[in-house]
Design a protein around this nucleic acid. Sequence first.
DNA 1: GGGTTTGTGTCGATTACTTCA
DNA 2: CTTGAAGTAATCGACACAAAC
Length: 369
Amino acid sequence: MELGLSLGETMADAGRDLVLGLGMGVVGVRREEEAAERGSRRDRDARRELEFGTTGWCGARSSPEPPAVRLTLLPGLVPRLGGLPWPPPPPPPPPSSETNRHLEASTTRGFDVNRAPSLSVAGAAAAEEDEEHDEAGAAAASSSPNNSAGSFPTDFSAQGGQVAPGGGGDRGACSRASDDDDGGSARKKLRLSKEQSAFLEESFKEHATLNPKQKLALAKQLNLRPRQVEVWFQNRRARTKLKQTEVDCEYLKRCCETLTEENRRLQKELAELRALKTVHPFYMHLPATTLSMCPSCERVASNSSAPAVAPVAPASSPSPAATGIAASSAPSEQQRPSSFAALFSSPLNRPLVAAQAQPQPRPQAPASS
DNA sequence: GGGTTTGTGTCGATTACTTCA
DNA sequence: CTTGAAGTAATCGACACAAAC
């Protein structure tokens, strides 16, 4: 099945961008998306900024798109696919680091990573300045993992949170490979405490990416190395994207099932019409004005010249119904209301476009250099 | 002004470790 | 106690971008 996913889009745009065809699986989807993204990462970042701005993190920006809804992937909250609602979009797409830098002053819901609540982080500059001290202190304060002492969500430095051996810094101070330079021992995986994970999760809800100052402040607050915070956010973003992909894939499968069923129904309907024509040949030769009742939907056709039923392609080939091509040439809803027509009647329930259509023109980012 | 280099951040893929049934 | 699966921290390589040259 050839699926063109638009994972990062909002509800409305997802409906427009969705391409549903036949032929391959999700891996191809991701590769396709990656290829597209590689070509215009700046565009993607720009889109992230726009969508992110609707979540409160970037309040100064305005977006014509509907607000992005944060993904909540609890089992009970996964959208019921029977009605084919588009799955919830991923959590606020991270703004580019450049954008993030401009958003430092933004206050977040109850928690500003730039302002440590209990720890005296006197501004981000101080935090940046204290990075070496921070890491030294963190290394000195490192103790047994899973230390759950202390009260969430305040000062984690007092609880001696775990810090990976070696005390390497983030990439700016140390190379990424220098994390396990404690005598050349193999990397030691340390699990974050529940409190630390919860705090990071709260922070992630506010912003999916961190600028360096936020990272340092958060690391200091949690008594972790900045690199650990960075890695946590990377992995968290990856998990979010993976889950969103699963949700989208499930939705598209349901879309395909629905369209297959609709195609089957139309095939049956066509067969019935042909049988009717065979049994009553004169029936079709009557003046069009006298043949105004559609045998299927039993509605009076207003236009006598319009065909009662749209031609349906064989099921063996990608049918127009399956690809959505027939949406424009199908009879009007007044003439033949069906679940298929209803699928395209509402903007939100019109997620399919022709697979052969030209790619949706992405919003062009301002040309650089 | 345009091309190259360098530094930085993010990503996907993967590894390695921990926890749990 | 052992084992396999699942979750996740950590690593690696690639890419994009901006700033410096």
